[in-house]
């Protein structure tokens, strides 16, 4: 008797819920959207605050830097000189590294490759965009943050790093003559590159022009993928992190040369006005 009662109660509860859902479906849907939006909104704000706190703590923790930093350097008129010194300090530190590294100098609109202090490749940047975060960074934080090369934690590109072609050894000279290797000079995939550096600094390289439909689709797909990964982080409730972005446009072949030259453990020197 008691089990029957329980079953009846369960059925009635389910029915009640169904009826409630059917009546208030639209309202529930609106509430759900509202709460998701609210969650995303607060997560965005909190992550921004966390990132800024992290940078402030980094500056404060470096007692040597704080001691050597003169408060007069905070004068806005000294900004360009301070930034130039910071850039050169980072270049000196970068030159201690044995492998090829990346320099992004937006003051002079240049992207370069360097090895042991020697510039081996230079590209003029025609167009770039930087986030508000970079503009608001105080001079002191700038001097600390960018006087060291930034470690690049991950690289994602639409082109392959090493265009390896696997070939099996021919059995005889006849097969060798038939399978003689000829490079495909027409292979030009659209080039897009994302570098995720320390402190949530993301540098996005895009090819300067998108002449074909394939280029345009690739550009859109690249952006969707990046946005998608950020949305996925939110969905899986990953620790929120604010990422500041720099978008740089350079020619396709230059981007290809730069990406293929970079080692797995890349360091990046960043400078901007």
């Amino acid at each position: 008797m008691t089990t029957k009662k329980k079953e009846n109660r369960n059925i009635s509860l389910r029915e009640k819920f169904k009826a409630f859902y059917n009546i208030n479906r639209q309202r529930l849907f609106r509430y759900a959207i509202f709460f998701i939006a609210l969650f995303v909104f607060f997560t965005t704000l909190v992550s921004t605050a966390i990132r800024i706190n992290e940078i402030n703590r980094l500056v404060q923790a470096d007692s040597l830097f704080v001691q050597s930093y003169d408060s007069s350097f905070n004068d806005p008129e000294l900004s360009s000189l301070l930034k130039e010194r910071t850039y050169k300090q980072a270049l000196i530190k970068l030159s201690e590294n044995d492998s090829i590294q990346l320099i992004v100098n937006l003051q002079d609109s240049i992207v370069a490759l360097s090895i042991k202090g020697v510039i081996i490749h230079e590209t003029k940047v025609e167009h770039f965009d930087i986030d508000h975060f970079f503009e608001r960074l105080p001079q002191m934080s700038y001097a600390r943050l960018f006087s060291y090369p930034l470690s690049v934690n991950s690289q994602y590109a639409t082109i392959v790093k090493e265009p390896i072609v696997v070939r099996n050894a021919p059995k005889d000279t006849l097969e060798a003559a038939l399978n003689a290797y000829e490079p495909d000079t027409l292979m030009q995939k659209p080039a897009f590159l994302q570098l995720k550096a320390e402190y949530g600094i993301h540098v996005l390289f895009q090819q300067e022009t998108n002449p074909t439909l394939n280029d345009k689709i690739s550009c859109l797909w690249f952006r969707i993928k990046i946005l998608g990964s950020e949305v996925l982080d939110l969905i899986v409730l990953k620790k929120p992190s604010y990422n500041s972005k720099i978008i740089i446009k350079i020619p396709n072949d230059e981007l290809r040369s730069i990406y293929r030259a970079l080692p797995t453990n890349t360091f990046l020197v960043l400078s901007y006005d």
């Binding site: 965005t44 921004t48 605050a49 800024i52 704080v66 003169d70 007069s72 508000h132 975060f133 105080p138």
Partner: peptide, 21 residues
């Protein structure tokens, strides 16, 4: 809102001893 947070949080500069001024 994000920009507002950036402006507010970065406004607080770390105080350093005035040496030369």
């Amino acid at each position: 809102s994000q920009n507002l947070i950036i402006n507010l949080k970065f406004h607080k500069n770390i105080t350093v001893k005035d040496r030369t001024n």
